[in-house]
Simulated assay, not measured.
Amino acid sequence: MDLRLDALSVVTDGRSLVRDLSLGVAHGQVVGLVGPNGSGKSTALRCVYRALRPSSGTVRVGERDLTRLPLRDSARTVAAMTQDGGVDFDFTVEEVVALGRAPHLRGNQALSRRERELCASVMDRLDIRHLAHRGVLTLSGGERQRVLLARALVQEPEILVLDEPTNHLDVRHQVELLSMLRGSGLTVLVVLHDLNLAAAACDRLGVLSHGRLVASGTPAEVLTTRLVADVFGVRASVVAHPLTGDPQLLYSLDPTR
């Protein structure tokens, strides 16, 4: 299912956080949102998973306006892994993962055998099955990140929205997570701070600055030395990855060179 942000704007307390943002994510595509801190990336995502209502513009899933869908229907369509999506109570890992099935259940309905198998399979994929009976509050930051992603995946969404999913993850799990997103077949909109990971994992990138979309295209089209200097304020050389050909940035720590 396609995802489309049409002329999306968010104004809060007189401040314009997102300005006339139009961006599409085709079915099965991974699109990354990148930009400096405070550029509006997380705010745009909040509109997609309905934590925030846009001041103007629309979020469309297929041909439907997301805000017009019943909450249960939108929760079955869009799953989110957010920066502030932690768990305050010490549920076990398997209990937290099972919460992803909530949009598909009625009241206190128990998980079916297929749903229990789905939860186990997703925990295996994310290398957290051995943590199933651990309290989630006892986990490291990286382990908890993988638990929250598992919760989103067992929701069986058509669209997956992730806000900085590689935070706290070691290199191996960063690569595994992004590789899994590439092969998931889901429509994915993801905020990433690491531009090299974004170039490797995403089909297309949207660059935000001061709430506006300033560039959109393939990583090779977007990640130029000029754009990195103008938007991020750093000097970088762009080289091709020797194995994949993806653009990779080599940063200069000396601002005069």
Score class of each variant (00 low, 15 high):
253 L>Y: 07
20 D>S: 12
248 Q>R: 13
109 Q>L: 03
50 R>K: 05
143 E>W: 07
150 A>L: 12
249 L>W: 10
213 L>N: 00
185 G>H: 10
39 S>I: 06
129 R>C: 02
189 L>Q: 13
250 L>S: 09
102 A>G: 07
171 V>F: 14
119 C>L: 08
82 T>H: 04
242 P>Q: 11
94 E>I: 14
22 S>A: 10
59 V>L: 02
147 V>L: 09
179 S>D: 14
92 T>L: 13
212 R>E: 15
199 A>L: 06
164 E>M: 06
209 S>P: 03
243 L>H: 13
84 D>M: 08
70 P>I: 12
5 L>E: 00
188 V>D: 06
175 V>P: 04
219 P>H: 04
96 V>I: 13
166 T>E: 02
220 A>R: 15
160 L>I: 10
186 L>H: 07
108 N>Y: 09
153 L>Q: 04
254 D>I: 10
35 G>C: 01
220 A>V: 10
79 A>H: 02
245 G>N: 06
92 T>W: 01
173 H>W: 14
159 I>E: 11
229 A>L: 05
117 E>K: 06
100 G>S: 05
17 L>H: 14
246 D>Y: 05
170 D>C: 01
224 T>N: 07
91 F>G: 08
61 V>W: 11
101 R>G: 03
77 T>A: 14
113 R>S: 13
168 H>W: 08
105 L>Q: 10
227 L>Y: 06
173 H>T: 12
21 L>E: 01
59 V>G: 03
27 H>K: 15
86 G>Q: 13
194 D>A: 11
138 T>Q: 05
124 D>N: 13
23 L>G: 11
176 E>F: 02
85 G>E: 07
16 S>Q: 15
172 R>L: 13
65 D>N: 15
